[in-house]
Computed example of a mutant assay.
Amino acid sequence: MTSLMRFKPGATFMKTSGNTILITGGASGIGRALAEAFHALGNEVVIAGRRREALEQTAAANPGMRMALLDIEDAAGIADFARRLGDDFPALNVVIHNAGIMRPESLRDGALATAEATIATNLLGPIRLTAALLPLLETQAHGAIITVSSGLAFLPLTLTPTYCATKAAIHSYTQSLRYQLRDTPLQVLEIVPPYVQTELMGPEQASDPDAMPLREFIAEVMGILTQSPQTDEICVERVKPLRHAEASGGYAAFFRQFNDGRTAAAKARG
């Protein structure tokens, strides 16, 4: 078993149908695929993000799916968004913190714009939105907070240092949140993706043969949610070498091999 297990008296677990689910970054990539998978199972799904056109296209392709504009970097906007969401969707019981950015950085050039935007989006966004939604979520049955970290939280890709650092922080935050909410009905889950065929780092990633096909990733994630609802960390088989890199021994050699290979691949792509 790849995860810590949640054992507490009277524990309830998230159902895969009959929920009202908010998914940030739900208009593309993993977020859209999760939204479509949950929508197909009979959940009311609300996708949120910055790009109205992308949200509208996704909602139009999935009749009945709802959408809401959200700038996850805007602290004041998050509080207002949560209030509106509670008014419009009082049965909201699940949030999936999927919105994220991943950009290469050179740490020697002194530029901080990418680092600051990445921290605001990937780390502060989920923290702020969780705080804003907790009063509503704690009143709901079978509620859940789901974060999306990364295999790179456990073995960083040095080309994207702040992205990896935010995902490591999300993993740590998720563990603390789970423990602090242990006396509530809320389940706290963490999805740990590997390298997946999305456009997170550009169009070429969506067809990269080294990346896991998105459809396969979502199918495995939904299978884990269905078959092992008590699992705290949702780790597909493909991410386990990264997830357990430290514990499996040989971390330093694996770190060098992994990063040398990714650097060479990036240079080959130009």
Rank of each mutant, 00 (worst) to 15 (best):
Met5His: 13
Gln57Trp: 12
Pro90Arg: 06
Gly100Phe: 02
Gly25Val: 03
Ala40Val: 09
Gly49Tyr: 09
Gly151Phe: 13
Ser176Ile: 01
Ala165Asn: 09
Leu177Ile: 08
His142Phe: 15
Leu152Met: 14
Ala165Leu: 04
Ile170Gln: 03
Ala219Glu: 12
Ala169Phe: 03
Ala141Ile: 04
Thr139Ser: 07
Met5Cys: 11
Ala79His: 11
Leu69Met: 14
Val46His: 01
Pro209Gln: 06
Leu123Phe: 04
Met102Thr: 15
Pro185Ser: 00
Ser150Met: 12
Glu53Asp: 15
Glu204Gly: 10
Ala99Cys: 10
Gly151Val: 10
Arg238Asn: 03
Ser28Leu: 10
Leu186Gly: 02
Leu137Met: 08
Gly261Thr: 00
Thr139Arg: 04
Ala60Ile: 07
Ser207Met: 06
Asp88Glu: 11
Ala61Glu: 14
Ala113Ile: 14
Ala68Glu: 11
Ala91Val: 00
Leu85Asp: 01
Leu186Ile: 03
Phe254Arg: 15
Arg256Gly: 08
Ala91Ile: 04
Gln140Gly: 06
His142Asp: 14
Gly143Pro: 11
Leu214Ile: 10
Leu133Asn: 12
Phe217Val: 05
Ile101Pro: 02
Leu152Phe: 14
Ile101Asp: 01
Glu116Lys: 13
Pro104Tyr: 06
Ile78Thr: 13
Arg51His: 14
Thr139Met: 02
Gln257Cys: 00
Ser228Asn: 13
His244Glu: 15
Leu159Val: 11
Asp260Asn: 00
Asn98Phe: 07
Val221Ser: 09
Ile224Thr: 10
Glu216Trp: 06
Lys167Gln: 00
Asp109Gln: 09
Leu133Asp: 05
Met65Tyr: 10
Thr160Ser: 02
Asp71Lys: 00
Asn93Trp: 02
Val148Arg: 00
Met14Cys: 03
Ala253Pro: 00
Ala54His: 12
Val196Gly: 01
Gln175Met: 01
Asn93Gln: 10
Glu138Lys: 11
Gly100Leu: 11
Leu152His: 15
Leu155Arg: 10
Ala266Met: 02
Ala111Arg: 13
Ser17Val: 00
Leu181Gly: 00
Leu186Trp: 06
Leu124Glu: 01
Ala206Asp: 04
Ile191Gln: 10
Ala76Val: 12
Leu124Pro: 08
Glu190Tyr: 13
Ser149Lys: 04
Thr16Val: 02
Lys267Pro: 01
Arg52Asp: 15
Leu34Ala: 06
Leu225Trp: 03
Asp71Asn: 04
Gln180Asn: 07
His97Tyr: 05
Asp87Ile: 15
Phe89Cys: 05
Ala264Trp: 08
Gln197Trp: 01
Ile224Lys: 08
Ala206Tyr: 08
Ala265Glu: 07
Ala252Ser: 14
Thr226Gly: 02
Gly223Val: 11
Asn19Lys: 03
Ala211Tyr: 04
Asn98Thr: 09
Pro63Ile: 08
Thr160Met: 01
Gly100Val: 11
Leu70Asp: 09
Asn43Pro: 06
Asp74Val: 05
Arg32Met: 13
Ala111Thr: 14
Pro135Phe: 02
Glu56Trp: 13
Phe254Asp: 11
Ala99Gln: 15
Ala33His: 04
Arg182Trp: 06
Ala48Asp: 09
Gln205Glu: 02
Gln227Ser: 09
Arg256Gln: 07
Ala37Thr: 15
